[in-house]
Amino acid sequence: MDKIKTLADLKKIRERVQAKIDLREKSENTENMVQIKVGMSTCGISAGSKETMSWFLEHLEENGIQAVVTQTGCMGHCSYEPTVEITKPGREPIVFGKVTPRKAEEIMQKYLKKDELVEGILPANYDTIEGIK
């Protein structure tokens, strides 16, 4: 592929992506996309959250997962960074801890593709007993 050096080069990519999106929107609803939020605060960044976020962005397509990848702040689980919160459409969010690119691969193959849980889920959104009542 040619080098991307100017905004004009970026525009060429835009055309290609536009065509791809047109195809996609005919078959799928974008509201039904998976939400992936990567914790991006001091603790997350120093533990490698940037690499984790890049990994998701780069490997979603080849795995056939449609997702929106964004960032979030620190949730207080600093010793378990990088943390990633994943929300499947219509489900409760799940927070995974120590998500290195290797762990991200496992999450991709198991949770995102086959709906199997993996080790390392953090109790970030557990209801209290009061909450359940």
Binding site: K3, I4, L7, D9, I13, V17, L57, L60
Partner: peptide
């Protein structure tokens, strides 16, 4: 993802 990659390269 493809746009993010392109921006990074740019």
């Amino acid at each position: 993802p493809e746009i993010v990659r392109a921006i990074r390269e740019l």
